[in-house]
């Protein structure tokens, strides 16, 4: 897996799936359309202020609430390269891996990194570098099979590829 590198958009505890992608947009399952409304109810300028490759950093229980896979789909389709959080809600965690959105749990990084910082993540080692501050953090590296799922852009491709 390639490293992720970008500027940080920072949020707090319990960012729920209703604010990540409000239900009023769930009559669509088109990733590009969902991406247009990503994070709309917590940060209405999200799509304007983010650039491709940027990184979301949040605190506890990111992605709590509904099981809608539309939430990680909208984040991935918006161009976010990784989500770092202190903890993730369990369904979101599974969904993110299954659709190939890199996520990483790291308490210290979640506390230390600020909005706007430039950050790089090495998925092989789990090392998170805050380039702006010159600090590094040890996040939880993905087990190999999870890295393969993400590299294959999700569980379905991974299953198909492993059958070949």
């Amino acid at each position: 897996m390639d490293n992720a590198k970008g500027h940080v958009l920072k949020y707090g505890d319990n960012v729920d799936t209703d604010v990540i992608i409000p239900a009023r947009y769930l009559n669509s399952s088109d990733p590009a359309e969902l991406a247009e409304h990503c994070m709309e109810d917590i940060d209405k300028d999200f799509t304007k202020r983010m650039n491709k490759g940027d990184i979301i950093v949040a605190a506890k229980n990111f992605g709590c609430g509904s099981s809608r896979e539309h939430a990680p789909i909208s984040i991935k389709a918006s161009g976010i390269s990784c989500v770092i959080a202190e903890t993730f809600a369990r369904i979101f965690y599974r969904n993110a891996i299954n659709i190939g959105l890199p996520i990483i749990e790291c308490h210290e990084a979640s506390k230390g990194i600020n909005d706007g910082d430039e950050v790089e993540i090495d998925f092989n080692t789990g090392i998170i570098t805050d380039i702006t501050k010159g600090t590094t953090y040890q996040g939880q590296a993905f087990p190999e099979f999870m890295q393969k799922i993400i590299a294959a852009e999700g569980l379905v491709n991974y299953i198909n590829e492993s059958k070949k």
Binding site: S67, R68, E69, P72, I91, N95, N98, L155
Partner: peptide
């Protein structure tokens, strides 16, 4: 337990 759509598909 609740899961996402990809787990449902699998």
């Amino acid at each position: 337990t609740g899961v996402g759509s990809t787990d449902m598909a699998a």
